[in-house]
């Protein structure tokens, strides 16, 4: 479904990616691991069409997305991808339910329908009571669960997560990984997780190790 082949990316003098490749099939959970500064986040950003690589190819469903314009990539991210970051992704002034409803409203859904769907997702997370709370009033784990719901609510084909449990204790981290992998799996969505944490990597069906901007593990499991 996603084929990243030999991409290169540099920031000024720094070479962040030097011919990295990655493949993800539907329903597959892939962990991207490696030392700090090795280029994991950059790989994820390029694969998701947030950054445009300097060289190499990124294809999604057989379509070259590195060649698309900013507007088209933006629409692709909005409709086909979901994102979970370490922190700071929830709009602090919106309630948890409104935060979850946001991607659907961005996709043109009616406000009422979007909010109803958001509440259904909170029920799935077993956190119905946080619907009216603002992110500042949520615990870290609750916030990340809401973030996972927000990443999945519009039924993306592929979910990108960059250190989704980075600021959580191990128990909350496991809860978050649990629901991310389970709910993505229910929909048959692929998942790419960037992480330092071997316990998180254990949720993946396969690992990809990045070192100095290259993928060093064979792509096959």
């Amino acid at each position: 479904m996603l084929h990243v082949t030999g991409i290169r990316k540099r920031f000024g003098q720094t070479i962040a990616l030097d011919g990295a490749s990655l493949d993800v099939s539907p329903g597959e959970v892939v962990a991207v691991v490696g030392p700090s500064g090795s280029g994991k986040s950059t790989l994820l950003h390029c694969a998701a069409g947030i950054l445009r690589p300097d060289g190499g190819e990124v294809a999604f469903d057989g379509r070259r997305i590195d060649a698309l314009g900013e507007g088209d990539r933006s629409r692709l991210r909005r409709t086909s991808f979901g994102f979970v970051f370490q922190f700071g992704q929830l709009v602090p002034e919106l309630t948890a339910a409104e935060n979850i409803a946001l991607p659907m409203m961005l996709g043109g859904a009616r406000r009422r329908a979007a909010l109803a769907e958001a509440r259904r997702w909170l029920a799935l997370l077993d956190r119905r009571e946080v619907a009216g709370k603002r992110p500042g009033d949520l615990s870290g784990g609750e916030g990340q669960r809401v973030a996972v719901a927000r990443a999945l609510v519009h039924r993306p084909r592929l979910v990108f997560a960059d250190e989704p449990t980075g600021s959580l204790d191990s128990l909350s981290g496991e809860h978050v990984m649990d629901i991310l992998v389970r709910l993505a799996g229910d929909d048959g969505a692929g998942v790419v997780i960037v992480t330092h944490d071997p316990r998180v990597a254990a949720y993946a069906q396969r690992d990809v190790t990045v070192r100095d901007g290259r993928v060093v593990t064979p792509v096959a499991a």
Binding site: S74, R77, F83, Q89, P103, A151
Partner: peptide, 16 residues
């Protein structure tokens, strides 16, 4: 700016 950048990364139209 991080919050806004994440919204943009997740495909929010700059217009919104």
């Amino acid at each position: 700016r991080r919050e806004l950048a994440i919204l943009a990364a997740a495909g929010t139209r700059p217009g919104s």
